[in-house]
Write a protein that binds this DNA or RNA. Structure first.
Lengths: 131, 131
DNA sequence: ACCTTACACGTACAGTTGTACTTGGTCAAG
DNA sequence: CTTGACCAAGTACAACTGTACGTGTAAGGT
């Protein structure tokens, strides 16, 4: 598929922040980290540099500071990561994961209802004869 | 929680095979790999050794060969991995992952139906007054 | 008794990851 | 001009990973 090298744990962490900011300097990314997540400015800097060499973001000097912009949709990365994860843990089968997720009590009752609606919608969409 | 170091990609791969076998020698694990997955005997051996030092399996010499047995439930490992994954990609929120999984078309129509039943069951279970 | 096969165990080694220090330069305040 | 804050970019480095080779040894076939 896409030939980018995958993201490591830490890189993903930084990438997520950058996605949420859309476009930011190292400092902005650093400051956007949750306060309980202690991480050095230089570490963030390193991650951004690595993200750039891996082709996930682009950086351009803006005055005196380098400003980074994501150049890969989070959607793609997330999709790829999920795929990889499902492969590794469930041999590629999606259902067991979904089952585990909703059985393990991590999904609230409200969310269950929402899921049901989603399923209904999907079913309708797949079998358009219903009329 | 549990203080085992996490499993790497490759370790997970081997662990999954061992779980499926229940108890096996290096060779048996090696042979249980899908044929298209080329991996050296010695590599499997290394992984099993690492799994042992990480505390996921125990090995004992049985005659001339070392036989490994899982000593951690796959359930636990899977649960922990999922937790970690959800944290990393979705900041701890389960629903977005579930949504992505079933929207992305990775779930067949039959499976959708099964999911619906599962949801119904869970809902019933959570609100026992119904009736 | 000798060769072959199979394995345990130690060792290797480059690539990745997490984490950060260091050096050298720029801007702004005194 | 001098000092301090701030930053880019290079370098560091141990731990972890993926992958496997080498050595020694025991067991079975001939």
């Amino acid at each position: 598929m896409t030939d980018r090298p995958g993201l490591s744990k830490g890189e993903m962490e930084v990438a997520r922040v950058l996605w949420s900011l859309g476009r930011a300097s190292v400092r902005q990314v650093h400051e956007a980290f949750p306060p309980d997540r202690e991480i050095d400015f230089a570490t963030v800097q390193t991650y951004l540099r690595r993200l750039e060499t891996k082709g996930y973001v682009t950086g351009e000097i803006q005055g005196r500071t380098r400003v980074y912009t994501p150049c890969v949709q989070p959607q793609s990365v997330i999709r790829e990561s999920i795929h990889d994860f499902v492969d590794r843990l469930f041999g590629g089968e999606t259902l067991p994961l979904v089952r585990q997720l909703i059985e393990e009590g991590d999904v609230s009752t409200d969310e269950l209802a929402e899921l049901r609606r989603l399923i209904t919608r999907l079913e309708k969409q797949r079998k358009p004869e219903g009329q």
